[in-house]
Design a protein around this nucleic acid. Structure first.
Lengths: 339, 339
DNA sequence: GTGAAAGCGCTAACAT
DNA sequence: ATGTTAGCGCTTTCAC
């Protein structure tokens, strides 16, 4: 038996108004506080609403002309704590202004992402925030045509449809390469998850390789494993890599911290000396990497900040404020002790 | 300058209908596929919609009598990968049926949770899924009065407002204690994060202690650290604990895997033998713990499954199907190598 | 400070 | 198979 239909019994603004002895529109004004209402009418309306357990219907309110106060968010994954952090930042900031997140997860599938955008737009959100996989032309067209604030996050290397908030993934990769070179490493390898669908991981790798090339070096090996990144995958991949490569002065750049921690675990299990036998570098600055017996060499990304700032962008846009279309939150290299 | 207002230019169903040369309701039927429509009218409507880039307005559709197809989800946190997993399961299942998640994060604050419920209800969701912190009487009253499908997740130890999907956290704690006892451990300690706000972690601890008591044992020490659980906190706390306790046959039960991995890192850094000097037990079965050089002794919780099953509950309820009010997804003890 | 009328975009309920 | 009418619950005009 299904539960009773909700709106069968739900009080409406009209009922509140009747009990308070005012017109519907006055009750509306009292509830919203937009227009001035006499002290005692306000009190009567509030009392009536309270008595009825009145819950406003924002579908109706928005349809009648209000701002939606829902923001659509499309992320490629939630398995990775990176996007959970971003979402946390988004949620925190949006909620302060009474906005809520409608969520879509694309699983790094551009076609799915496009479908999600279409569907979420049917809810007439006030804005969109997305960490695009490889956005399709269709997606970009829809976003542009929506006329809404659209914030693309994580990456600032590509020209955004509207606004971008993030960091240069490419520069992050470059900086890591330069750091390793400066530390004296000359033997480099790359170990990553499936970057064919993850443009940001690819940009980091490309930056890494480009900086090596500037120094006249190339990777001794590059291993790309299918599937999403994980500690387990990093451990397995490191074992594979070391089947082909000798240790000693070898530095492995991982696609992210999860993978690098896996590499560290492999080293521990094999009794390899880090960084003498094997140096490791990650990306993201996750707490797990920093709590390792030897803190991981990595780059801190400001994920919660990205979420908060993306939310602020949407809100500012809605308030008619001017906005920088490319917002670089930067990053910070953490030297750690693994390289 | 704010972007153009969205609905200033958005095509409506009326326009689609006019171009297709049919009435509005026929266009509506054609778009939704609920009622039979002639082949060629269908084609004409679809062509018109396509030509106009028509995006249906679900606010209007829902207001006019449709089911909302939004499900409100309230979680206590996103910092913990546990809830990211649950959310992933929810999102995956709901999306299959064209439903979307509206999200609220309470930060383990019951008052905040209550406010979130109130706000999310204004969107007239089709159902609610929540992992309650310590739900207030107000929250429970609202949920019950909503008449909607309400699924409380993670925990099945308390009587749910409507439906519960999860596992017995208390039984999980008991099982771990019995396992450690069976392995011959007699010296036990507990290290947890702030469980005053996390009823599930508390239930596990209580179960753990209860099983010890049955065996005539008590904890040698119990340390509860302020703040959310993390690898770093587990590492720090383990150091503190071992200031007061001698190693050798000591088993530490952690509030979860994050904390336990931190303990493992401390042991590694100190050169302690695991499990001879120090045995460790976690909870959740996170991949990080299983990728450790020695896989962590822990209990696997089925987080994604909980999300999927909770979503199915909401959907089944909406379809008028009967539902078991308490759904136990169970758990599995992973012996690992750390105890 | 308050109200009456009109309408947001859509769909259920009856028509035909 | 299609159309007409009415209305979902609210807010925006424009009055007073």
């Amino acid at each position: 038996m299904p539960a009773a239909l909700p709106d069968d019994t739900r009080p409406t603004l009209a009922q509140v108004a009747r009990i308070a002895g005012v017109s519907e529109i006055t009750a509306s004004r009292a509830m919203r506080g937009t227009t001035l209402v006499a002290q005692d009418t306000l009190a009567r309306v509030q009392a009536a609403a309270q008595a009825l357990n009145y819950v406003p219907n924002r579908l109706a309110g928005t349809l009648a002309g209000g701002q939606s106060r829902q923001v659509a968010v499309v992320l490629p994954s939630l398995s990775n704590s990176v996007f959970a952090d971003v979402l946390k930042g988004l949620e925190t900031r949006l909620e302060q202004d009474g906005y809520h997140v409608i969520l879509g997860v694309s699983n790094y599938d551009p076609a799915h992402e496009e479908r999600l955008i279409t569907e979420l737009l049917t809810w007439r959100p006030a804005g969109l925030v997305l960490a695009p996989a490889e956005s399709t032309p269709g997606s970009r067209r829809m976003l542009a045509a929506s006329g809404l604030p659209v914030v693309e996050i994580m990456d600032i290397d590509r020209a955004p449809v509207d606004v971008a908030v993030g960091l240069s993934q490419r520069a992050a990769g470059q900086d890591m390469a330069r750091f390793l070179l400066q530390r004296g490493y000359r033997r480099m390898a790359y170990l990553g998850h499936d970057i064919s669908v993850d443009p940001r991981a690819r940009a980091r790798r490309d930056g890494f390789c480009a900086a090596l090339a500037e120094a006249g070096l190339t990777l001794e090996a590059m291993l790309l494993l299918p599937g999403p990144s994980s500690v387990g995958l990093g451990r397995k991949g490191t074992a594979q890599l070391l089947d082909r490569l000798s240790v000693g002065g070898l530095a492995v750049c991982y696609s992210n911290d999860d993978m690098a921690v896996g590499g560290m675990f492999h080293a521990m299990a094999q009794g390899l000396l880090v960084p003498a036998d094997l140096a490791l570098a990650g990306f993201n600055g996750l707490s797990i990497g920093q709590a390792l017996p030897q803190p991981l060499t990595t780059i801190e990304s400001r994920r919660v900040l990205i979420g908060e700032q993306a939310a602020s962008c949407v809100l500012n846009r809605l308030h008619g404020l001017a906005i920088d279309p490319v917002q670089n939150v930067g990053f910070r290299l953490i030297p750690g002790a693994t390289a």
